[in-house]
Nucleic acid binder design. Structure first.
Lengths: 146, 146
DNA sequence: CTCCTGAGTAGGTTTTTCCAACTTAGCATC
DNA sequence: GATGCTAAGTTGGAAAAACCTACTCAGGAG
């Protein structure tokens, strides 16, 4: 991590939240439904101290909230729930998934796919113009905001 | 880095290439036009040994190629050029940029924006169906490939 | 034949991560 | 009312990665 994370670049700011080891994978599990400490720990085999640290960072920056919950016959515990901001990271994770499937494929194909909810129509991640139409990659330029 | 990076998940595979510190920022500079070792080093203030290591990883996995080039009156040197696979990561970086702009904003607004090339029409990153129409986030489900 | 420059390599320190064991709080059981 | 169980962590020490500075190496320039 650049400790002087260039605050002028929004990619660098996003990476200040998500760029440390495990952060994306923790987020992946959250998007797949994990909410409890032990769930993240067991699914990812991540060290508990690192998990504590990452969950705190994700809560601090508004990706997750730490909510008390109580199961019958148990004491109050805490669940980590996605905020709307966290949900929006589904797009970024989708882009990484898509790239891995295309460029680091496995012989048996992808293990997860994104679909229109309730149908089997496939979806992918792409640039889109202000009218909701896909724009091919070559038609996109990233320029100073000026 | 999980040294046993779960190969069944394409996000984890992507992170095997891009998940180490500096990798995304090196890629950002490459997408903005950096090609030479010293350019990356100077723009990012990254330690040269780390830069050597990351560039080698990105070349190894086909994000960049290491091409000899010769400027008049200088010996052969090497440039790091994006492959088509690397270009496709523009979508993932765009998603991170967009998220940072929305959820970790700066008072003076974004420093870079994505536009339709040659026009000032803004573009964003989103899920898109097989007919090229944007699909709202709530309409997307990520399910086992079955 | 000495200097300069781009592209790294090398050595030692600091920071992160990893691993395993330990703690804590409350319910439940004996 | 002591003991055990479980979720959610904390702690301490070893290993790995990143950082920083200085140095090397190759070839053209002066």
């Amino acid at each position: 991590m650049p400790k002087t994370l260039d605050p002028v670049c929004s990619i660098a700011r996003s990476l200040g939240v998500l760029g440390e080891r495990w952060a994306f994978l923790i987020l992946r599990e959250a998007l797949l439904g994990a909410t409890r400490f032990a769930e993240f720990r067991d699914r990812l085999s991540v060290a508990p101290d690192v998990l504590t640290d990452r969950l705190a960072t994700l809560v601090e920056y508004g990706v997750l909230t730490r909510e008390p919950y109580q199961e019958p016959g148990a004491r109050t515990r805490y669940a980590y729930l996605l905020t709307p901001a966290g949900e929006e990271l589904r797009v970024a994770l989708g882009a990484l998934m898509q790239w891995g499937d295309r460029h680091l494929p496995r012989p048996e194909g992808p293990s997860m796919v994104a679909r229109v909810r309730g149908t089997d129509r496939p979806v992918h991640v792409a640039f889109v113009d202000d009218r909701g139409r896909e724009v091919p990659l070559a038609g996109v330029a990233t320029v100073p905001a000026a």
